[in-house]
Design a protein around this nucleic acid. Structure first.
Lengths: 236, 236
DNA sequence: CAGTGGTCTAGACCACTGA
DNA sequence: CAGTGGTCTAGACCACTGA
């Protein structure tokens, strides 16, 4: 009843595209026709079509009109949330155990560390994430102390460093790499796997503005954990 | 000079957020103040702020104002393009070799196949993707023939089935799972890996409207291939 | 209850580009 | 060169919600 007109138009056209009624390449009615159909002004129609265009569902070409877009395979939305939050979302009880903590100057011969902290200090943390008491991921992290000074005094024995950082030093940019590896001896022991078992590896680097915050690498037992990415054409 | 005003406003505020000048939680000027600053009407300011809100960079609350959002860790953009197109983008020469092709009714006792094609026919394809002549991925695919009938007669010996489908049966929804595995004997032989080597596994299911199109599983040599996801706050 | 954003109108002028 | 989308205005009324 009270849904905005522009949203009604957007959802209407979106439903026709997602159901296949409107196929890729099909031409939509021109804006002025849609104005008549929906009994509204051109600005309102334009708002709806702009949203569809921004979501990649249609393409708009001057003089020619608006067309249903051919979907491209890339640009899928990947959920990589804070791990404890994700475990909670899946109904488990998250845990974190800190295995080691070292505060020291960045090693100039370690490229990753000096990229992260220059000649400043790094806080190097190793730990294990668990779900319902079972280890599921081994985490190696380095924090640029200059970008997150209060972390010196934070109690990280139970709060995962990623969660602490998220609460105290929000990032503005991030990059994630996903790969695979096999469990070495120490890793297998920590995660209670057999040596040679497959692991999913997630590495992430985060920035706040121009400043680097943290590098993290997580190894997951591949049998217990995978990533699901959904294509989300509708926007939010 | 000729950039639209709403875009200038959006990029301006976005730059301040990404550089850290505007920090999470900071309040933006109210719309009417921005109208004065930029010398434009409220609709134009509103368009810029709506785009920032849609991109997740700000949050808008009535009576309270607009605030720089705390970034959430999830919702990263993952590029999973058509594999030959991706190889080409990385500067390699893509190749595809079809190893087997089988057209038959879906097996009722195979859950994945019957979900895909009901009691109809499936086309089951196995093949290898290569880059500059080197095998990099083993692909197992099942196609719901009812949703893509012309594929019966397509020449798939050199065109990868995924590329053919993308050109002929555009999808409207997709779901991707990413996991890890170790190379079994036959897989290792096909990809020229040692048995037990780590592999990245990507499984994807695609729909066109309510209709299922295809299931595909690809095994990549983890040493030769990984996925990179970038956080893309700016939208397009 | 007052301040803020959310939506909408009825126009206008313009830029682009395909017929 | 005419049809289409892109942008913009100067107003208006309303819904929500925090002070």
């Amino acid at each position: 009843m009270s849904a905005p007109i522009h949203q009604r138009i957007r959802l209407d056209i979106e439903a026709r595209i997602l159901s296949g009624t409107l196929a890729p390449g099909d031409r939509l009615p021109i804006e002025s026709e849609l104005c008549l159909s929906y009994g509204c002004s051109r600005m309102t129609v334009s708002k709806a079509l702009s949203a569809l265009s921004a979501a990649g569902l249609i393409e708009r070409r001057k003089k020619a009109g608006s067309f249903v877009a051919r979907p491209r395979v890339h640009s899928m939305v990947l959920d990589v949330p804070d791990l404890p939050a994700e475990i909670r979302a899946r109904g488990g009880v998250p845990g974190f155990r800190l295995l080691s903590r070292e505060l020291r100057p960045a090693r100039p011969d370690d490229r990753e560390e000096s990229d992260l902290a220059g000649a400043g200090e790094v806080l190097v943390l190793h730990g294990v994430h668990s779900c319902d008491g079972w280890p599921i991921a081994y985490e190696e992290r380095a924090v640029n102390v200059a970008a997150a000074a209060p972390i010196r005094d934070a109690d990280l024995s139970e709060t995962a460093p990623g969660t602490w950082l998220l609460d105290h030093v929000p990032w503005t940019a991030a990059e994630t790499r996903i790969s695979a590896a096999i469990a070495s001896g120490p890793l297998a022991a920590t995660l209670q796997l057999r040596i040679g078992a497959p692991c999913l590896v997630i590495e992430r680097r985060t920035w706040r503005g121009a400043e680097r915050i943290t590098n993290v690498r997580q190894h997951f037992d591949a049998e217990a954990y995978d990533l699901v990415a959904r294509f989300a054409p509708s926007g939010r």
